[in-house]
């Protein structure tokens, strides 16, 4: 098991460097940060000097080499836009994004899985049909539209929930802020987390439903019923557990993309997280922030995939025994 983890972590380093290279190369196509960094009075010479001193005139491979060396020394550089160390900005923004993403993931799983099970077990029930219809909207409506729709209804018309920001946050120490401990913080979480969760929720629901539908037709489920087990036990313990491997795969990938692509939701709700920081960096051509963000996201993806691989072992005894067999052979 340990060998497996180490091997994966080694791959992770390669992935991160590769993503860094791609990000760094791409970021030179988003424009020239210099004109955003100075006002309209700055002379052409001043601009040229700034560009030269920031090393933006060097060939991309040299710039990247310099950058990656700094990264391995723990230096993520300084934001062109805010004039602050990138690592400090990330530390400030990460709690907001993680809180939103995790809440959305919990919402997506907590609602999506039961909905999927019900839709599979009782396909003819009116509730199931409603779930299926609603899920079509969830899967086809773009998140920015859902976000704005929720704002119009719950912020502008009903005035129940805030349309932007995180509300009042509490510092848990070490700069880790949370909105979970205040009323306004909780209220501020509702709309963004629904917006972010909706797509994943419907995806998970449809996936669970189709997987369950297959499993429910198998013989061992029929035997379980025949043994007189309670339907709830059969459905949730015997059937659901056997659909979990593909669900874990998809959920893990989706969790990665929830974190990475909270960008749109964060933009709509002015949520002060990593996604908003990234969008602003793209608009500004703030190369250090862009490159570091993409590399960090790739780290997340690698880690989440690693965890999901480990979870396979936990839920599927066949994989465990196979791994042991290969080891001993």
């Amino acid at each position: 098991m340990l060998a497996f983890v180490i091997q994966r972590l080694f791959q992770a380093v390669i992935v991160v460097v590769a993503v860094g290279l791609i990000a760094f190369t791409l970021s030179h196509y988003v424009g020239d940060p210099i004109n955003n960094m100075v006002g309209q009075d700055a002379t052409i010479e001043d601009r040229a000097a700034l560009r030269e001193e920031l090393g933006l005139n060097d060939p991309v491979p040299i710039q990247f080499g310099r950058y990656i060396l700094n990264v391995f020394e723990g230096q993520l550089g300084i934001s062109y836009r805010l004039g602050r160390p990138v690592s400090e900005l990330f530390a400030e923004r990460l709690p907001a994004t993680l809180e939103l993403s995790l809440l959305s993931a919990i919402l997506a799983l907590g609602v999506g899985i039961p909905m999927g099970v019900i839709a599979a077990v009782y396909p003819r029930l009116a509730t199931s049909r409603i779930f299926m219809t609603v899920s079509l909207f969830g899967i086809s409506l773009p998140p920015f539209f859902v976000g704005i729709l929720l704002i119009v209804v719950f912020s502008v018309s009903l005035q129940w929930l805030p349309s932007y920001g995180r509300g009042t946050v509490v510092d848990l120490g070490g700069g880790w802020t949370t909105g979970l401990l205040t009323i306004s913080g909780l209220k501020a979480l509702i709309l963004p987390s629904i917006t972010l969760a909706l797509f994943q929720m419907t995806l998970i629901m449809r996936l669970v439903r189709s997987q369950m539908a297959q499993v429910l037709r198998t013989d061992y489920i029929k035997f379980a019923h025949a043994r007189g087990l309670k339907p709830r036990i059969v459905n949730f313990r015997h059937a659901l557990k056997n659909t979990l491997v593909p669900i874990i795969t998809v959920t893990a990938l989706q969790l990665g993309s929830i974190i990475a692509f909270a960008i749109i939701t964060e933009t709509v709700f002015q949520w002060p997280g990593m996604g908003l920081l990234f969008i602003q960096a793209v608009q500004f051509a703030d190369v250090p922030v862009m490159a570091a963000y993409l590399m960090l996201v790739s780290v997340f993806f690698v880690l989440i995939n690693l965890i999901s691989d480990l979870l396979y072992f936990a839920v599927d005894p066949r994989l465990r025994s196979e791994f042991e067999r290969r080891r001993s052979a």
Partner: peptide, 18 residues
């Protein structure tokens, strides 16, 4: 002062009195 980048959200925040 709060910056709100999304036009629709900024207008919504005004209309809702936030």
């Amino acid at each position: 002062f709060t910056p709100i980048g999304s036009d629709a959200t900024r207008v919504a925040a005004l209309l809702s009195g936030e």
